Computed example of a mutant assay.
Amino acid sequence: MSAEVDAGLATLSDQLILATVLLYVAAMIAYALDLAFGRSAGASARAARPVLATVGGGGTPAAGSAPAGDGPAPKAPPAWAVWAGPVAVGLSWLGWAANLASVLTRGLAVDRWPWGNMYEFVVAMCLAAVSAFLFMQLRYPVRFLGAFVTVAAALGLGFAVRYLHVQAGPVVPALNSYWVAIHVSAAIVASGLFIVAGVSGILYLVRKDSAVRLPSRQDLERVAHRAIVIGFPIWTFAVIAGALWADKAWGRYWGWDPKEIWAFITWIAYAAYLHARATAGWKGRAAMIVQLVAFACLLFNLVGVNIFLGGLHSYAEVPG
């Protein structure tokens, strides 16, 4: 691959990252307004509940009356609040497009896969997290997670720009391999799904029973479980692909490198969550704690190992 760098595209990539952060922050604010002033999760559930006719001559409820036992009808949200949710989703897609464009322009600027250092990896991981949320939203009613996923992505990008940013340039020869497209891409996709699960788990633990505008704990647990069920086999593939790449690059499948060890520890932690949930029937708080322990292992493997432990993966170019 060419060692030349297209400075114009590299600068455009950096500018797109800043635009992405602003769009994610704007989306987060819109999601927060939707949560604060839109229809509450409890009200939405009551509105979706079918009203059954009374058997035995009790008659039908009067028009406009609330179903028995549900209390007074919920207050309608302000007119502007109705648009907060759709605006937030639109801003999220714009931020996602800017995030994607920043990754593509970075790759074109250096003529290689754009995840050859920690800065590029974190940018791609934030893109994967928002992608997982947006595409899950197309199928499941998970818009309530938007405020938390977008703020996590904005903070991740801010951290990358402030502490991890390096100028676009060539990478060490070991990274000029098609295995980057296989191993690292799988790790990025799985990490994005695990971030969605982690955000759901944190919300599960901090949610109070009186927080009627937040989704129920059952919904949060369901989202976390679905994300992990999809992400775990992808992470498994990433670990296997990493071993195959290690054999090709260093002549052995496993060498007890810190990155290899923590990738395997992360795999074990998520496997423990799935196993406990499937066989022992662990659900609720206990299951969320296990998956958050796995999430902590993931974050340390992705960022902490490169900063504090080094090893054969120390070519990640973390600025000193």
Results as ranks from 00 to 15, higher is better:
residue 5 V to P: 00
residue 6 D to L: 05
residue 7 A to D: 12
residue 13 S to E: 04
residue 14 D to G: 08
residue 19 A to M: 14
residue 19 A to Y: 10
residue 22 L to T: 13
residue 22 L to N: 03
residue 23 L to P: 08
residue 24 Y to L: 13
residue 28 M to P: 11
residue 36 A to D: 10
residue 39 R to P: 00
residue 40 S to Q: 01
residue 40 S to H: 02
residue 41 A to R: 07
residue 50 P to A: 01
residue 51 V to S: 10
residue 54 T to L: 14
residue 56 G to I: 02
residue 57 G to P: 12
residue 59 G to I: 12
residue 59 G to T: 08
residue 60 T to M: 09
residue 62 A to I: 05
residue 67 P to C: 09
residue 67 P to I: 11
residue 68 A to G: 07
residue 70 D to E: 14
residue 70 D to H: 06
residue 76 A to R: 06
residue 81 A to T: 04
residue 83 W to C: 07
residue 85 G to R: 14
residue 85 G to V: 09
residue 88 A to W: 10
residue 88 A to V: 06
residue 88 A to Q: 11
residue 91 L to M: 09
residue 91 L to N: 08
residue 93 W to A: 05
residue 94 L to A: 15
residue 94 L to W: 01
residue 97 A to G: 10
residue 97 A to R: 06
residue 101 A to C: 12
residue 102 S to W: 02
residue 102 S to Q: 00
residue 104 L to A: 14
residue 105 T to F: 06
residue 106 R to F: 03
residue 107 G to L: 08
residue 115 W to S: 12
residue 117 N to D: 15
residue 117 N to T: 08
residue 122 V to C: 04
residue 123 V to Y: 03
residue 123 V to K: 05
residue 135 F to E: 07
residue 137 Q to L: 15
residue 138 L to N: 11
residue 140 Y to A: 11
residue 141 P to S: 00
residue 145 L to T: 07
residue 153 A to S: 12
residue 165 H to Q: 10
residue 167 Q to Y: 03
residue 170 P to Q: 06
residue 171 V to W: 00
residue 172 V to Q: 13
residue 175 L to I: 03
residue 176 N to G: 10
residue 178 Y to E: 02
residue 178 Y to A: 04
residue 179 W to K: 04
residue 181 A to Y: 09
residue 181 A to T: 07
residue 186 A to G: 07
residue 187 A to F: 11
residue 192 G to L: 02
residue 194 F to L: 09
residue 194 F to H: 03
residue 194 F to C: 00
residue 199 V to E: 02
residue 203 L to V: 01
residue 212 V to P: 05
residue 213 R to W: 05
residue 214 L to V: 06
residue 223 V to N: 00
residue 225 H to R: 13
residue 227 A to F: 02
residue 227 A to R: 03
residue 231 G to Q: 05
residue 233 P to W: 05
residue 237 F to Q: 07
residue 239 V to K: 05
residue 240 I to C: 05
residue 240 I to D: 03
residue 245 W to Q: 07
residue 257 D to L: 03
residue 259 K to D: 04
residue 260 E to Q: 13
residue 260 E to S: 08
residue 261 I to C: 02
residue 264 F to S: 11
residue 266 T to C: 07
residue 272 A to M: 05
residue 273 Y to M: 08
residue 275 H to I: 08
residue 278 A to M: 07
residue 279 T to Y: 13
residue 280 A to E: 09
residue 288 M to N: 14
residue 291 Q to E: 15
residue 295 F to H: 01
residue 297 C to E: 06
residue 303 V to I: 15
residue 312 L to G: 10
residue 313 H to G: 03
residue 318 V to N: 01
residue 318 V to M: 06
residue 320 G to R: 15
